[in-house]
Design a binder for these strands. Sequence first.
DNA 1: GTTTAATCGAGACGGTACGTCCCGTCTTGAA
DNA 2: TTCAAGACGGGACGTACCGTCTCGATTAAAC
Lengths: 207, 207, 207, 207
Amino acid sequence: MAQTSTPEEPARPAPNPRRRSERARRAILAAAGELLGEVGYARLTMEAIASRARVGKQTIYRWWPTKAAVVFDVFTEMTGGAAGDPLPDTGDLDADLRTVLHAIVEEYADPLMDRINRVFIAEVQTDPELAENVMELLLRPNLRAFRDRLLSAREAGLIDAGTDPDLAVDLLLAPVQQRWLMRSGELTHAYVDALVDTVMRALRPRG
Amino acid sequence: MAQTSTPEEPARPAPNPRRRSERARRAILAAAGELLGEVGYARLTMEAIASRARVGKQTIYRWWPTKAAVVFDVFTEMTGGAAGDPLPDTGDLDADLRTVLHAIVEEYADPLMDRINRVFIAEVQTDPELAENVMELLLRPNLRAFRDRLLSAREAGLIDAGTDPDLAVDLLLAPVQQRWLMRSGELTHAYVDALVDTVMRALRPRG
Amino acid sequence: MAQTSTPEEPARPAPNPRRRSERARRAILAAAGELLGEVGYARLTMEAIASRARVGKQTIYRWWPTKAAVVFDVFTEMTGGAAGDPLPDTGDLDADLRTVLHAIVEEYADPLMDRINRVFIAEVQTDPELAENVMELLLRPNLRAFRDRLLSAREAGLIDAGTDPDLAVDLLLAPVQQRWLMRSGELTHAYVDALVDTVMRALRPRG
Amino acid sequence: MAQTSTPEEPARPAPNPRRRSERARRAILAAAGELLGEVGYARLTMEAIASRARVGKQTIYRWWPTKAAVVFDVFTEMTGGAAGDPLPDTGDLDADLRTVLHAIVEEYADPLMDRINRVFIAEVQTDPELAENVMELLLRPNLRAFRDRLLSAREAGLIDAGTDPDLAVDLLLAPVQQRWLMRSGELTHAYVDALVDTVMRALRPRG
DNA sequence: GTTTAATCGAGACGGTACGTCCCGTCTTGAA
DNA sequence: TTCAAGACGGGACGTACCGTCTCGATTAAAC
């Protein structure tokens, strides 16, 4: 989750994870989390993390290649790997989608989540390896959960047999994420309801 | 287009734009553009821009508050304010949308555009003022162009009278931008075609 | 006097001495001098000098290549280039030598001079370029002063015409410096008197 | 020879020398010696010694308090405690002195001896405890050997009865060591011969 | 011969300082 | 006044070593 570099350029002899200090790991992630809240990502420094965690800088660099990697672990530690829980399946597809999308809207409304999510979006643009990590660990599981719910609905005949599930997922998630990301419009529950209504109109089984 | 700070805090006597050196301005933007291509945004420094442009650092700081502002101007200089051109209106809404979305896909496929667009996405997460500039000058015009085309189609009875044009725009653009942004899936012309098909199914006039 | 490196390896564009800040120069030398007295040379750090002098570290590194070079300038600033004053010439050679050697003994007895002199002796063992500087600016002038006095005495017929002045200088200075340097014996005025007596016995004109 | 600290401050339970690994001791001294030759004393690090010797750092710190102490043992291991051998006594004092001083000149001409001797000179300026060790184990025996030879010559009536043997030793050794140490002049056999000649002139029995 | 406690190789740890890179401001002539 | 140039005070970087501190895995002394 932490290691982002693959080609091992400078041949530093690779630290032994069995001897890693759990105490230091926790202190670093805690310090990073606190500072992230206090000063934001741009003004977050490795030096400040080390000093707040009462840890040598080397101890951070030994286990994380970059500031982004540390923050990434702060995040995964926080959410406890909740990403990818399957969607509820009450039989009422519209209601289930609404439930989950409302929850997402709530999450984006939380200032800490907002901030930390924006950090990833920003970092991911620059660091392709981090991008892959974020995709694989945070996004893809969610996309899959939606996809699975839609597939089960398709089998139940609730949506058209010809529906491309990936496209359907994009139609449900992308507008929400886009509004949040670009602040291109208000992100309300009403918006989500209208979104689900409209998308479902396109997915309904055709004659 | 350059000044991103509004309240003129530090009482520096506000440079006189009439005496501004056009030569320096051009050299700075050119140097910034080149370096952006060579090292990317994160490793782009004011110092390097100044040195490449054979310009004093002060000359940059006199006219742009931040690195992001410089790059922003590089971008607007490049696109020549093309943002916001109205969509073609051939009467065939599906075809018009496809045309424009295919063009967007092409743009994202251009490495320089890809890179520079990612810079904005990243910066915008941190700098709310830049965010507003980007929204106002780059995004909103495009959204408006789509919106106008959809409104004209609604008037022509091609899409349902109850259609929320903002939501419709989101449905057409967000999936494309999302795929590009998060690299969450291939961004092909076939995808765009399927997208337009599906969205139009939701928008068609209902009995 | 400060620059100790000759081959200009990394091609850093060589700072312009005309624009050098006298204020910073003075502050750095003052801070270095104070700290040298407080913690000694081994525990003296560039960081502490910079911080005490309220100066960026780069400002030190811009003008001095090493800690030793800074301390070297502290020293030359202190002594004001006094090295190399000609010896008194009262006509009484023995008395003149005694006067000067007693003064040297006093100088070595001063704790600050002791400390700073030891720094040079130590550094000079490692850094041949500094060694050359020290030799040329601090030692050689003194050796020359002694040599000149002995030559004038030889012309006056006070010492044997066959005397090698360089050897004679060594006989007068080396034992004093050696005792101080290696702490191999007490360095008293009585010792100096006996030394002059004995050496003069070797130098007296022979039949 | 190794322990330079006297009062056993930190109550660490004092390692048992009987269980000491001879293999490790040799490897450490060998590694230190090699590295000393390769990178010099200033760039010699405990870490490098440990790694080259394939030894834990603790094993070094267990038996030597400082880098200087290690190098000191490298040296004593090398010379095998040859310091302090009595001077030859052929009856011809001048010849005996010349013999020994020529040997010293040869020693200083050997690059490894030159380097290692300079290390001690340098270290001794900073570390008074090491200074005492070096004086006691390396220098004083040599001084004593010279002194003894001169005393026997004085008894034989070869030099004046009033001669202070300590001063006489200084007159013979200090100029040689000084020239080597400060590189203040060439250190040739001719120089040594002239030195002995001149000094002996001062020491000859007076009417 | 076994036991057992100290030493060993290894290397992670909390730290300090290094020398470098930029930041954004300030100062100096020349145009 | 603006410009090119670049020195300045400062903050953070990522690295190198310091000397201390665990870890098992050998030893070698005492049983």
